[in-house]
């Protein structure tokens, strides 16, 4: 755990590592451009976007936001415990982090099920094309994040842990990135139009 001595004030070593932060910025720019384009389309078809937005459940969106924020909180606690060499507590909080992600996915599946049942699929109108593309792309990120966290969890549980603090910080940064993307998606898709 000699990563404790990494100087995060150096431009080359942001918390989690420079590579994960390059990925984070690329992802944020991609989602950001897509959301700006969506709002631009919304200006051209205001009625369609408004009526479609009203068909979405802001309550489900809010609960999902709370799941991700809570999961992110547990992730931050997990990293803090690992920094203090408390692997057991770190693994304990990691379990709750993964639970938050799973609950998010379950609720998203429920939301998708009702949308598909109502015939509001990807080609229904411009709003739903953006809704499906952006939220599904985000869901893929959450699934990848969960796979990373499961790997980290089992690495931590080994007698001689195979996970370093740097690995943990990079995994946490990826997981928080899912939070960040959702924090941009939620107000624009569920509340704006």
């Amino acid at each position: 755990m000699n990563e404790k001595f990494i100087d995060h004030k150096s431009i080359y070593y942001p918390p989690g590592g420079i590579l994960i932060w390059i990925i984070i910025f690329l992802e944020l720019i991609t989602f950001g451009i897509a959301l700006v384009v969506m709002v631009n389309y919304g200006k051209q078809e205001p009625e369609i976007f408004h009526n479609s937005r009203l068909q979405l459940s802001a309550t489900i969106g809010t609960i999902n936001t709370l799941f991700l924020i809570t999961s992110g909180y547990f992730m931050a606690r997990s990293v803090n415990y690992l920094k203090n060499d408390d692997k057991d507590r770190s693994a304990f909080f990691l379990k709750f982090t993964m639970l938050g992600g799973l609950l998010f996915l379950v609720l998203k599946c429920v939301e998708y099920y009702f949308k598909i049942e109502a015939g509001l699929t990807v080609g229904y109108n411009t709003f739903y094309t953006f809704y499906w593309m952006l939220t599904l792309f985000h869901v893929i990120h959450v699934i990848v994040g969960l796979v990373i966290l499961v790997t980290v969890f089992f690495g931590l549980r080994k007698k001689i842990p195979t996970v370093s603090l740097e690995d943990m910080e990079a995994s946490a940064a990826f997981w928080h990135m899912c939070d960040l993307i959702w924090l941009l998606l939620f107000p624009v898709i569920y509340l704006l139009f």
């Binding site: 995060h8 992110g72 928080h176």
Partner: peptide, 27 residues
Amino acid sequence: VVLILAALKFIGVSFFFMELKKAHAFW
């Protein structure tokens, strides 16, 4: 107001949960 509140949450997650506050000013 909704967007500013979203921006505040974004800053909360990135600067505190991701510990960006400890990073170089560039980031």
